[in-house]
Design a protein around this nucleic acid. Structure first.
Length: 320
DNA sequence: AATTCGATCAACCGCCCAGAA
DNA sequence: CTTCTGGGCGGTTGATCGAAT
């Protein structure tokens, strides 16, 4: 990138909140002579050096113009979300469908909350991240009006530093001292294991069964911070559940599928089929009754329900 | 006043998954 | 079962802005 002219047709260069304009609901944009700006075409992608995902030629890139926003909002108001690939053409937009989706979800959706994150939201994000890792869409599902992109940016710009200033590793949510101690012990173990292995080779013996790592009594890393006071119902509210969409909602059933390697760990329970029930980590006690296993048996008939608190194991992942 | 630098965030990309054919 | 297609996600980039020098 870099070479592109600063041609972002920002509707207002004011430093005020990024949401500079929201087309009024009455603007059904009937003007038929909208000339969409092509001035910023291929500024970013050309330099990013990657091939575009969809219809490459004659599509706008870069910042959205007010006219484009109005067209998109107007079209979605009339036809609903979804079918993004065909939407640009139908709406008269020279944009990739993905771009339209992103623009709508992250910026134009009427139910978006704008403004600074509250301390409570901070708290939720941190705790959910400890549990789920970089599953921004999942985290966003717990914060009405916030988008995954927004949370992701907020994490990278604010919360990371916040945790660092507290001496916590943003990925593991553990104190750096503890992380360093674990790393040091792991290193020491590997060194001694290698030494043991080489001596075993000299003796013509091979260790049986357990790996050397298993044989050595590795101090297990401390369990990730659990939040006994936090009862996070991870049912994922459909982002636009209040605004009905035509072919969109069915996708969210797979959001809880695999957490990144960071967070999770202690306090999980096995469900059927080699997955992990998240109920415990989410603060559900026994009295509340984990029904994941029951649901597992019904997964084929109701996949939306089963995936509320249940995620399958990743390859090579074990229940610790 | 001009320049530099860090922070912020909108937008893009490739990859992945689910469902359909 | 395989292939194709559409949609969504997480990671990354770069333009922009404000503060500092």
């Amino acid at each position: 990138m870099g070479g592109g002219p600063p041609s972002a047709p920002s509707p207002s260069p004011s430093p005020s909140p990024p949401l500079i304009y929201i087309p009024s609901s009455s603007s059904s944009s009937t003007s038929s002579n909208l000339s969409l700006s092509l001035s910023h075409t291929s500024t970013t992608a050309a330099v990013m050096g990657r091939s575009p995902c969809c219809e490459k030629a004659h599509t706008n890139k870069g910042a959205w113009t007010k006219e484009e926003d109005e067209r998109l909002v107007s079209y979605i108001r009339g036809h609903g979300e979804g079918c993004w690939r065909s939407l640009p053409k139908a709406a008269g937009l020279l944009r990739c469908g993905k771009s339209c989706r992103l623009r709508w979800i992250n910026y134009l959706r009427p139910d978006l909350k704008r403004g600074n994150f509250t301390d409570h939201e901070d708290d939720i994000i941190i705790k959910l991240h400890a549990l789920l890792g970089n599953k921004w869409s999942l985290i966003a599902g717990r914060l009405p009006g916030r988008t995954d992109n927004e949370i992701k940016n907020y994490w990278n710009t604010h919360i990371k530093r916040k945790l660092l200033s507290r001496g916590l590793d943003p990925q593991t949510h553990r104190p750096f001292a503890a992380v360093a101690a674990v790393d040091a012990s792991v290193t020491a173990i590997k060194v001694s294991a290698a030494a043991a292995e080489s001596s075993a080779e000299v003796d013509g013996q091979s260790s049986s069964g357990m790996s050397t790592d298993d044989q050595l009594e590795t101090p297990p890393p401390p369990p990730p911070e659990r939040c006994p006071d936090l009862n996070l119902d991870l049912s994922i509210s459909l982002p636009s559940s209040n605004s009905s969409t035509n072919c969109d909602n069915h996708h969210h059933h797979h959001h809880i599928k695999a957490s990144s390697g960071s967070g999770g760990g202690g306090g999980v329970a096995m469900g059927g089929g080699g997955g992990v029930c998240l109920c415990y980590n989410l603060g559900f006690g026994r009295s509340e009754g984990c029904i994941c296993q029951i649901m597992t048996s019904n997964a084929s008939t109701n996949p939306h329900v089963i995936n509320r608190y249940y995620r399958p194991l990743e390859d090579g992942q074990h229940i610790g």
